[in-house]
Write a protein that binds this DNA or RNA. Sequence first.
DNA 1: GCTAAATGTTGAT
DNA 2: TCAACCTTTAGCT
Length: 266
Amino acid sequence: MPEGHTIHRLARRHARLLTGAPAYVESPQGRFAEGAALVSGSEVVGTDAWGKHLFHEYAGGRLVHVHLGLFGRFRDGRLPAPEPRGAVRMRVTGESHWLELRGPITCEVLTPTERDAVTARLGPDPLRDDSSAERVLANLVRRRTGIGALLMDQCVVAGIGNVYRAEILFRHGLSPWLPGRLVDESSWGVLWEDLRVLMHAGVRSGRIVTTRPEDRAPGEGRVRQTDAYYVYRREGRPCRLCGTPVRRTTWGGRNLFWCPTCQPDP
DNA sequence: GCTAAATGTTGAT
DNA sequence: TCAACCTTTAGCT
């Protein structure tokens, strides 16, 4: 489930499992063999996340840069590690735990300068303390494109994916086609704070839940997956607030879900 | 067992 | 705008 919250959660977890000890890095599948050899045996000094990009920092100044793309996945566990099965791009063995990475779109070794070049192309990340609502707003108001496309543009704001995009626009009654230049400062400020709260909750729980308790079936404990969203993947089902069937279209090659009543055309 | 779809990005047309 | 790529899973037969 790789939106920004997944990556930040992985960064924290990997820091806990690996930091402060040497790690042995291999590529059972072979496609990361050269990179693995560059860092293997060095101490893990920390991890970092920016948007959907994850970095493992090794002593000696090398970084492993991972982008999960749509399909990438990490698994981990306590040593001893099981025999790698199938296409394992990277396997990391620390002092007490192992990690396994499959299906990433990117897995490469970078220098600090190269890492800076990666993050320089990214907009502010709502999950980072150094992010700023004002800077994102400045990126929005410069563009005529609809806010629905802009929120998915990682140069504008980093870490939002298709689920958070659909859900945050619904929660604020905004049409995905509202031009970025028409986004006003006060409603953007409210949306941004809400987004930060939702994404931080996602980091904590490891899943995306955007519905308010009063908008889902009563019950304690874990929110059922069918109750987690307002519009994402709910095409044809009645809007939780107004009953209008949720709509879906394809925009920029991605599915876009919205309620035409709660999010009227601009 | 097969097919389609998926929370993403890049590069060609 | 479209296809390609990375891999798993759900829903069929």
